[in-house]
């Protein structure tokens, strides 16, 4: 029983990070119709900025704030410096440029910080809380849950309760028509990149202490897992990203515990293939939303 609860807790914690990162991918997709392959490298770059603040001040809460700001800034930089100048005729343009961004950022981070893993200390214990004889989740995992719940709720409110969210979605579906309806499309695109990159950076920072460790390639595997999660949930669906993220996290934890770490990625890819065969638009996406 204790093992099951522990696995479930660990799986949900891992899944919550997947969900948050997948949410970042969904946000950029909703705002710009771009699958941002540079999300991992951008997020890791933001996490390094937060790392510098952490070793300078020792304040993890400040590092959380800084990673959001740095992520937003990097998002603006990539959008204003590169993405807005791309021809939109083919989605491949953005993918190729994003891969270029990955190479530049990981190269720069390697030069500046080296390839070794940087430790990040957190002000919460990572030892599981025990209730009676049952070990459940660690305080840090609970902290991660709370932060992610707040972010997800905030994003949910943004898109469902504000005109800003409606304007962002409208401009993502049809820029020309949105523009004629008074939406500043370029601004919406920039906001999408800011929001997405901030959330991605936060996901990496939260995952570093328990999952990733911080090095220039920390975001690579997280990106692969989260991208899979986003596809499974439906690229247009924040709810899908959260539910699929938690599900994949639990699945991955159970599979790797039972059969070893090498089987985990195979299980996730099998799940991806299954979803794409049975429901190509993802489990929670509105019909045709991904193609719009």
């Amino acid at each position: 029983m204790s093992t099951v609860l522990l696995l479930l807790g660990a799986g949900l914690a891992r899944g919550a990070v997947f969900a948050l990162f997948a949410l970042a991918l969904v946000l950029i997709w909703r705002a710009t119709r771009i699958a941002n392959f540079a999300q991992g490298a951008m997020a890791v770059t933001a996490a390094y900025v937060a790392y510098l603040v952490l070793i300078g001040t020792g304040s993890f809460p400040l590092a959380v704030v800084v990673v959001l700001l740095a992520g937003a800034g990097i998002g603006v930089g990539v959008e204003r410096g590169l993405m807005r100048y791309l021809p939109t005729a083919s989605p491949l343009n953005a993918i190729i440029v994003a891969i270029g961004v990955v190479m530049v950022l990981t190269g720069l981070l390697g030069i500046l910080f080296g390839a070794d893993y940087k430790p990040i200390s957190v002000p919460f214990s990572r030892e599981p809380i025990t209730v009676g004889s049952l070990a459940i989740v660690s305080p840090y995992t609970l902290f991660v849950f709370v932060v992610i719940a707040v972010v997800v709720a905030g994003i949910g409110l943004l898109f469902t309760r504000t005109s800003l969210g409606l304007a962002m979605r409208a401009s993502a579906f049809d820029e020309e028509v949105a523009r004629l309806n008074g939406v500043r499309v370029v601004r919406m695109r920039t906001l999408g990149w800011m929001l997405s990159s901030a959330v991605g950076g936060l996901a990496v920072l939260l995952a570093v202490p328990t999952e990733l460790g911080l090095n220039p390639h920390s975001g690579d595997l997280l990106f692969v897992n989260a991208f899979t999660v986003a596809i499974i949930g439906g690229l247009d669906s924040p709810v899908g990203a959260v539910v699929a993220g938690l599900g994949v996290g639990v699945l991955l934890t159970i599979v790797t515990t039972l059969w070893g770490a090498t089987v985990g990625p195979i299980a996730i890819l099998l799940l991806l293939v299954l979803v794409l065969l049975l429901r190509p638009q993802g489990l929670f996406s509105l019909r045709k939303a991904r193609l719009a």
């Binding site: 005109s163 979605r169 309806n181 008074g182 939406v183």
Partner: peptide, 23 residues
């Protein structure tokens, strides 16, 4: 037509109310 295919009918019409006044 140029309707926003992923938004509901109501949201499509709401978009006609200039969701964000520029500036």
């Amino acid at each position: 037509l140029a309707l926003f295919s992923g938004l509901t009918v109501r949201q499509n019409v709401m978009a006609g109310l200039s969701p964000l006044a520029p500036g």
